[in-house]
């Protein structure tokens, strides 16, 4: 039997590399009874389409930025609040813990089975106008954002002029100066070659993004118990591999971006505090929208890890 895995990340991204690990592991664990074909880089369509495809069973597995799943499962927005996680360790503790289990139930309602979370990383701001030294420097910048309500609200709260735009148009829009900036994790900024067309870089860390690995639930349920265990075991290895690699790639990516000529302006403590206070209302409104229950689970986990 063949497992088809679709994703929208470039072949060199850590998450695509991890799928190769998964392929190797599962073929070893099942003596080749389960084979794997990987289709990275939008070969089978973009992120939104991948989500539809796995729901409908057109592919067995996908890996996709968790934000794309919030359109189907709004509860996942609990992970998409600005300035929520102090560091990646805490972030993973939250999704690997009770909150993750709770979210799995919501996924199951949409006939999706979560196999775990990889790291997409902290999202960082780049622009072509000025270094971001204080909160006022963000004012009026035309920033491309994913078409996501929380993201748009966050940047509007920061005084920017957010533009929702298809990622396919982003490079040339930045190149031609149609918009001033964009925000993405360092590793994505590198592989998308935005350093060629963007001058200023900051470590704003305004969101921490996860990558969800999701299977079609009916398909997974129909596998023999041994095969099902093998899938989860192989994916655990792949996820562990990816999280290691992502840490490495993030710091390498920052070095590379500076080397390629971007001006890196670290976020000062005052600016960090300003960013948080300006966006506090956005977090509150997300909380009101999806209810306190899930957030309590996040809060207790964060409190435990910062003690």
């Amino acid at each position: 039997e063949t497992i088809r895995i679709a994703g929208n990340f470039a072949g060199e991204h850590s998450s695509s590399q991890a799928m190769l690990v998964f392929k190797e592991e599962i073929e070893k664990l099942t003596d080749g009874e389960l084979e794997v074909n990987i289709f990275p880089a939008q070969q089978l369509g973009g992120a939104a389409e991948n989500v539809q495809a796995v729901k409908l069973g057109a592919v067995e597995l996908i890996w996709v930025g968790t934000a794309y799943l919030t359109r189907t499962i709004p509860e996942l927005e609990v992970l998409g609040v600005p300035f929520q996680f102090p560091d990646r360790e805490t972030a993973f503790k939250v999704v690997d813990g009770p909150l993750g289990a709770k979210l799995d139930e919501h996924l199951a309602e949409e006939s999706l089975a979560s196999l775990g979370y990889m790291e997409l990383g902290f999202r960082q701001l780049t622009n072509n106008v000025r270094p971001i030294e204080s909160i006022d420097d963000i004012a009026g910048l035309k920033i491309r954002l994913q078409p996501n309500e929380t993201h748009l609200a966050t940047f509007r709260a920061l005084g920017a002029n957010p533009v929702a735009m298809d990622v396919k148009e982003l490079y040339s829009a930045l190149e031609q100066g149609v918009i001033d900036g964009q925000e993405n994790p360092f590793s994505i900024i590198v592989v998308s070659r935005y350093s060629e067309i963007q001058k200023h870089l900051s470590d704003t860390r305004h969101f921490f993004d996860f990558i969800s690995v999701v299977a079609n639930k009916d398909w997974l349920d129909e596998l023999s118990p041994e095969h099902r265990d093998a899938v989860q075991e192989a994916m655990n290895k792949a996820i562990a591999f990816q999280r290691e690699l992502a840490i490495e790639q993030e710091s390498e990516a920052l070095d590379k971006l500076i080397e390629e000529g971007m001006t890196f302006t670290p976020v000062s403590d005052e600016l960090a505090a300003d960013l948080r206070s300006k966006t506090a209302d956005v977090a509150t409104s997300v909380r009101e929208r999806i209810g306190d229950e899930l957030f309590t689970l996040v809060d207790s986990e964060i409190a435990a890890s910062t003690e």
Partner: peptide, 19 residues
């Protein structure tokens, strides 16, 4: 032996493009 439900998403998404 594919589920025919793969048709509409492909058909729709391939033209769902701003460019």
């Amino acid at each position: 032996g594919f589920d025919l439900a793969v048709l509409p998403p492909r058909i729709m998404n391939s033209v769902n493009s701003f460019p």
